[in-house]
């Protein structure tokens, strides 16, 4: 054994040289590699940067929101429960904005959930390879279209369509229904692709079990595959809601500018995101209540969407644990 070690030859600068025991021991001893260390530190910093982003969001939103709530006449309770948003008269009740956001979100989900889920079932359980190869890229393109384009679509197609069907006197040019329905089309590909992933992750053996018992395709899909994929589908639904709440351009273009507390979807009403976009689009003076208010609304938006995203991710993880 010993003679083997001493005979070992190693590549060194001078070419092949016999290596003695001492040198070998020295070689294999741990020694700090500065370059490796610096690289690792740098890479760690890259990863940690995302944490700073989150901290930055929380810090900035929190700080400016605090300033906002310190403005004379603004109170957090009134902010959360007030029914009038009119900064000009010092009335900061966020409910009209929240209400409009909820209405557009509701109509968006009304379109995207049934359509998206049905499309997912069709694609994962029924469609032939050929149909999939046509439909899936089309849905991907739909998902990749910028939301400002959807906003344009809402205003030049959806609204005139609604006005044609329901009557021009009934439907205002800007209305939450048009924005919501268009948003539904925008979210449809998201729901369908996430749900399809969940459905396809259900093991084949489960389908075979159902078929082996004499179930039809529909029975297998609806009563066995769908329930098994349920948490994944709910996760998709929640992510869809979160997207709808945070969506800005469609509502900024089509839902109307001017907060209004109304349950009539045919009327104009400004959403939280629409308000932020409108206020910041003008010439904005720093440290005015107007300026600070977009941070307070932004914070509310951030907390709602973060909450929804976390729930959705927990559901997806649970689903993975069951089937992996």
């Amino acid at each position: 054994m010993e003679s083997q070690i001493t005979k070992t030859k190693q590549f060194t600068k001078g070419g092949l040289k016999p290596v003695t025991d001492d040198i070998l021991l020295l070689r294999i001893k741990k020694h700090p590699r500065m370059k490796e260390f610096f690289i690792q530190a740098l890479l760690f910093f890259c990863g940690a940067l995302s944490i700073f982003t989150t901290l930055g969001i929380v810090y900035e939103l929190g700080k400016e929101s605090l300033l906002f709530f310190r403005t004379p006449g603004v109170e957090i309770v009134e902010f959360l429960t007030g029914k009038v948003w009119q900064p000009a008269i010092g009335s900061f009740g966020v409910l009209p904005l929240v209400n409009a956001t909820l209405m557009t979100t509701f109509f968006a989900m009304l379109v995207s959930l049934p359509l998206g889920l049905s499309a997912a079932i069709y694609l994962s359980e029924y469609a032939s390879q050929k149909i999939r190869s046509i439909v899936k890229p089309a849905l991907e393109i739909l998902a990749g279209i910028p939301t400002v384009v959807y906003g344009y679509f809402a205003l030049t197609f959806m609204t005139p369509l609604l006005r044609g069907i329901l009557g021009e006197d009934q439907v205002q040019i800007y209305n939450t229904l048009s924005a919501g329905l268009t948003m539904g089309l925008m979210i449809l590909p998201l729901i369908s692709s996430m749900s399809e992933d969940a459905l396809s992750a259900v093991p084949k053996s489960l389908r075979e079990a159902a078929y082996g018992l004499g179930a039809t395709k529909l029975e297998t899909s609806i009563k066995v595959v769908l329930p098994a994929a349920l948490s994944g589908i709910i996760a998709a639904f929640i992510i869809g809601i979160s997207r709808a709440i945070g969506e800005t351009m469609i509502v900024a273009i089509a839902a109307g500018s001017g907060p209004a507390l109304t349950l009539n979807p045919l009327k104009a009403a400004e959403t939280m995101t629409g308000y932020i976009a409108r206020i910041s689009g003008g010439d904005l003076a720093y440290d005015t209540p107007d300026y600070n208010s977009i941070f307070a609304i932004g914070l509310l938006l951030f907390m709602i969407t973060l909450f929804l995203n976390i729930i959705s991710r927990l559901l997806v993880h649970r689903f993975r644990e069951v089937y992996e």
Binding site: P203, L206, A209, G214, V224, P227
Partner: peptide, 20 residues
């Protein structure tokens, strides 16, 4: 085929109970 599978059942290699 649905009728056939009701009359000719199948048990698979890996146990595959429904998650119910």
């Amino acid at each position: 085929p649905v009728q056939i599978r009701q009359m000719i059942g199948m048990v698979f290699q890996k146990p595959n109970p429904f998650p119910k």
